[in-house]
Amino acid sequence: MFSFLTRQRKPSSAQTAKERLQILLAHERSSGAKSPDFLPLLQRDILEVVRRHMDIDSDAVDIKLERSDDLSSLEINIELPSVKVEKARTL
């Protein structure tokens, strides 16, 4: 309710700072010690699976992450050889 009201106005920089920290720390705390290196491993696994079916370069995978308070998205772009099209999948 109150956050709705404050969002209508331009938030103060202190409010911005608090919100940025809350989002970031929620992710950092929840990920714990296990997950830090999962992205390189995920990338390796994706490459391996795609390579079973197609001949792609190890440079061809691009992973983007966008975190926000209500939604986080992981975007994986795989550049396919000879076909000049990028396939984007959002998980």
Binding site: R20, I23, L24, L39, P40, D59, I63, L65, E66
Partner: peptide
Amino acid sequence: MIMGCERRVVFDFINVIQGDAK
């Protein structure tokens, strides 16, 4: 955080040094 891109970090300097990312 200071540069405002904290939500977009995927791979880092150490991943690159260790060959886990380009």
